[in-house]
Amino acid sequence: TASLDAKKTAYGQEEKLTSYEDVTSYNNYYEFGTGKEDPAREAVLFKPAPWTIKIEGAIKQPKTISIEQLLKLVPLEERIYRMRCVEGWSMVIPWIGLPLKALIDWAQPTGNAKYIEFVSYNDPRQMPGARMSVLDWPYVEGLRMDEAMQPLAILAVGLYGKVLPNQNGAPVRLVVPWKYGFKGAKAISTIRFVEKMPTTTWVKAGPREYGFYANVNPQVDHPRWTQSSEKRIGAGLFAGRIKTRMFNGYDEVGQLYAGMDLKKNF
């Protein structure tokens, strides 16, 4: 994999990184199969280049942006983020990317843009998991506009100083560290500014289990998994669990949800 330069930031300097091996071999990416090991094996032939993202909806003019243009939009940054999966495990990943806000500013949405919808690439010929109807393809995720503008939300194009591996969502994916991992749409092909809250893939699959907001919240349990604690990947057989923190420890996002009932809006 080609290396990728980025300026260091203060984010997550205190954290112990999850190994490159684990980050790139234990993935939830159903377009390449439902097993955690499937994506690393099945995404080998996936072609992340050439790549353009369509940007449409409530903007002055529909646009496309190539991955090369995106990389030059603003200087790339390294952000070390915790990633908490809804299944009760977590990793610490040194992402390389750019603030989502930079792309939004470039796209110039209109006042009607209340939400932003991310559509993942879907090609059953290249993606064996996409031939099965386990989820309603293509994969759709979304954020409220103010969430999308939050400086923590990034579009990741690399990790560990390298170009993003296919199994991690190459060439470009969303990373929203205070939300459960499934919010991070991979291989983004369309970004749409919309007025109404998008119906996201996992909400469609199980509205009782998955919500639009999906903020990491140790007080609101998933019907199947405990959310009060988590297993850190790579910590070893006998490491036990660590306590899950509200908003995955990113307290600065709290103001986005002031006055909201987070039990209802899970």
Partner: peptide, 18 residues
């Protein structure tokens, strides 16, 4: 290995999750 014999957490996990 999963719960390090943390009985409070285990009890919660068992009761809360069908």
């Amino acid at each position: 290995l999963d719960y390090s014999f943390d009985w409070a957490d285990i009890l919660k996990d068992v009761i809360k999750h069908p």
